[in-house]
Amino acid sequence: MVSKKAGSLPGLLKGMVTTARTALRPTQTAEYPDVAPDLPPRSRGVIALLEENCTSCMLCARECPDWCIYIDSHKETIPATTEGGRERQRNVLDRFAIDFSLCMYCGICIEVCPFDALHWSPQFEYAEVDILDLLHEKDRLSGWMATVPPPPALDERSAEPAEIAAANKPARGTGLVGGAGAAGGAAGGPGARMPRTVRPRPAGAGPTRGAAAPTEALPAGVPTADPPTGDPTEALPTGTVPPPAKEPLTGTPESVPDDSPTPPPVDEQT
């Protein structure tokens, strides 16, 4: 007992010293309702919806492990922009709702969205008295967009983001091959590198306008006639206009026969 007592006495004193030292040290407590928590980037608070980006493709709803995303949409027909063109159909989002009483915050819907319509927001203070109120409809989900932070900066020496890497990637065939490089180099701007071979071009049509030439040629030819409203009678004379618009295309093979298909895709990038 004596030896035990002698052995435990420093331990007792050590306990008192430890507690006293802790008492003198400032505490780490952050008083939450008064002090906003310092959340790390990519905190998963609530899912925000950028409605304009949503195409109602249903990928998120299908991938959701607990099926808490509800999407209703209908198709709308957009009349053809050009006379005799094909009518197009577009999805219109009627309802987009996430039931946060079911959501398990896995983030798969955000990962899977091909159009960046869903985003994580660190906002987490949306507790409700009634569990049914946790079903956030489209307007409420869109309201969370204001709280979505900008994406955090990349780590040092990390790879470029995919979009920027794709944009910076030189087009195929630049540099060594002379003829193709002339076309690919035009991505840097109209004045970056002019084609070495002089091409006959319509006056006023810069190299960047090559792709837009068919559509721009129409208003240029018939300024007042919009394609949907144009009468068939008036369309007949305008129908003759597109062939001149194709003239640059048909004209280039004459001067540069070897790389005739390249100019339009290159100009689309600009």
Partner: peptide, 13 residues
Amino acid sequence: KLMAHMQGRLGPM
């Protein structure tokens, strides 16, 4: 308060 601070807490605030 003393117990709270000895345990690294704030206690009633």
